[in-house]
Simulated scan of single mutants.
Amino acid sequence: MTITQTQLTVNFRIEAGCLGPEGVSHIDQFCLLAHKRLKALHSDFIDWNLTPRSDKTLPEIDYAINGKMLSRAQAARYFTIFDQHIEDFEAAVFEQLPIIIDQYFSR
């Protein structure tokens, strides 16, 4: 199997606080909605894993291939295979978050 056939897993941990003071009661459902919205972002090579960020020692976003964690530099090299930049990808993810929050509360 070549690297282009292997999807990059993006572990995105979302803080309940971004959903306001009652965020803890919404975070699980929000993660489901966010997954639906984000899965279209580079779906050709990305597999999303969205979870609540309950462990603050873990980063908000990290990367893996076949269950093996990658350094940010390794993930950045993976993005270059698809003529993408990790910085642009992460910026797009964090730009989508407030939009998805608005969608969540307006449904």
Rank of each mutant, 00 (worst) to 15 (best):
A75M: 02
R77P: 01
I27V: 12
G17V: 02
F79S: 05
E22Y: 06
A40S: 02
A34K: 05
H35E: 06
L33Y: 02
V93P: 06
A64C: 00
S25G: 06
W48N: 05
I65Q: 15
Q7R: 14
A73P: 00
I99N: 05
T9M: 08
T4K: 08
H42A: 08
N49H: 11
L41K: 09
P21T: 12
T6P: 00
A76Y: 01
A64R: 10
I81W: 12
A34R: 07
P59E: 10
T9W: 00
Q103E: 14
K68R: 15
S71G: 07
A75N: 01
N11D: 09
K36C: 10
I101C: 10
G23M: 08
L41T: 09
G17Q: 11
F30I: 01
Q29R: 09
A40E: 08
D88H: 09
S54I: 08
F105K: 02
T51A: 15
I14W: 02
L19D: 04
D88S: 14
R72M: 09
M69S: 13
P98R: 02
E90W: 03
G23P: 06
S106W: 02
M1A: 13
F79V: 04
E22K: 10
T6G: 00
R37N: 07
F45P: 04
R77I: 03
K56N: 12
R13N: 07
E87Y: 09
N11Y: 10
I14T: 04
I65E: 10
G20V: 11
Q84P: 03
L38F: 11
E60Y: 15
H85N: 15
C18A: 13
A91N: 11
T51P: 08
D28V: 10
F30E: 02
T2V: 00
G20A: 09
P98S: 02
E22C: 02
L32F: 04
P98I: 03
A73T: 10
K56E: 12
T4R: 05
L41E: 06
L38H: 07
F105N: 05
I27F: 01
C18D: 14
P52M: 00
S25Y: 13
E15D: 14
L50E: 07
K39W: 03
A16Q: 03
R37C: 08
F45I: 00
I3K: 13
D88A: 12
A40G: 15
A92S: 12
L8Q: 08
R72H: 13
L41I: 08
G23K: 06
D62E: 15
I27S: 07
D28I: 11
L19T: 01
I46P: 07
D44W: 04
Y78A: 09
Q7L: 13
S54W: 00
G67S: 03
G67Y: 01
F45H: 12
I14F: 00
L50H: 04
Q84C: 09
K39T: 10
I101Q: 05
E95H: 07
